[in-house]
Write a protein that binds this DNA or RNA. Structure first.
Lengths: 192, 192
DNA sequence: CCTTTCGATTGACATTTGTCAATTTTTTTC
DNA sequence: GAAAAAAATTGACAAATGTCAATCGAAAGG
């Protein structure tokens, strides 16, 4: 399973086998069945998690029991609750597996060590953070400036893979609309 | 003006006068009158900008001429278009001064040098990035899960200062609602 | 001090989106 | 392959938000 991670790092940067071995020495492995939690609301997040295979989501549950998905993540992506991880506070979110998934976990402190002992890896992680920031910024822009239909179109364009693998109700949740509204967008009334 | 920056850095970290002098050697200074641009759509962003005083905003203008404000920023905050800065692409956004402002600019490349020669500063900047990520994540969560009224209440609670200094129409734009809707939230119909 | 401008409010109405319940369709399980 | 469960669709209606135009009020400039 670590091979996926190796290939990922090699694709992004120039790294020696020795350095990869160092990273591996800090890694833990985990498999999750469908619907199993990686993190539950109230827990403190301790790991940076790399997804070797599968499909995950991060979401909250509000007072009325409605789920709000803030993120999907799949192979070669990282997932965690950065707020909880960074500040050691209980998480507001749940993270669970939409599909059976294989994960590589790096403990917070070990991650720090790994980033310092293998600088190219440290740089890679910082680059990811920068890119994630930009992605979030763009999502904020979209969500305050687009109609429900535009949001859906953009989602399909940006994440065609998710559009196929994720149940519609979850996509609606991610977009901040109801499943019914999404269904109606997709099946417009018989054209006049 | 650099004194504001010094105080800011000293508050967040332990740094010597020599190191601060190094940072100063990389800094440029800029004053903006009300409504002046720091960055215009289509430009490539070249600077990390620290706000020594004043109030700025980042926004886009859509096809219908509507403005969408993605961020306000004031004293002791950083502002730039990270996407443009990072990837050297033309910016989708405008940045301008809501109030007369004083800025300290760090050229992209010089910033890199500064972060490397003064590691505590590098760490500070990375910490800011992490926090910004978390703030954006929380904003995404809020915007997909809250009503217009809740968004406004949260805005006032989180940024009481902005709520006073920024024209209402701009707050509405930031929240992704129309000025009329915001006005109605604030002035509910005669009770009952 | 007067006039002009900009921001905020309000009304009337249109449009979008949500809610709830009932089906229908698809997927899963045995 | 039949039964059960989950997901998606649809209808009728309600609530939230947007649009456009008019008005009001404050403050900015001469």
């Amino acid at each position: 399973m670590f091979e996926v991670f190796k290939a990922y790092v090699r694709r992004q940067t120039t790294i020696s086998d020795e350095e990869l071995a160092i990273l591996e020495s800090h890694a833990k492995f985990k498999k999750l069945r469908k619907k199993q939690y990686l993190l539950q609301e109230g827990d403190v997040c301790r790991y940076h998690c790399f997804i070797a295979s599968g499909l995950m989501r991060t979401y909250s549950v509000d007072g009325k029991g409605n789920e709000h998905i803030i993120r999907f993540a799949t192979k070669d992506w990282w997932i965690s609750d950065r707020e909880s991880l960074l500040f050691g506070v209980p998480s507001k979110f749940n993270i669970d597996a939409i599909e059976e998934s294989e994960l590589i976990l790096f403990d917070k402190d070990e991650m720090k060590v790994a980033m310092e002992t293998v600088p190219v890896f440290g740089q890679l992680v910082t680059d990811i953070l920068n890119k994630s920031f930009v992605i979030n910024q763009n999502r904020i822009h979209e969500v305050i400036s687009s109609t429900a239909e535009e949001k859906y179109q953009n989602f399909v364009k940006r994440y065609p893979d998710f559009a196929l693998r994720v149940p519609q109700a979850m996509i609606a949740s991610y977009l901040g609309i109801t499943p019914e509204t999404l269904s109606r967008l997709r099946n417009p009334k018989p054209k006049k």
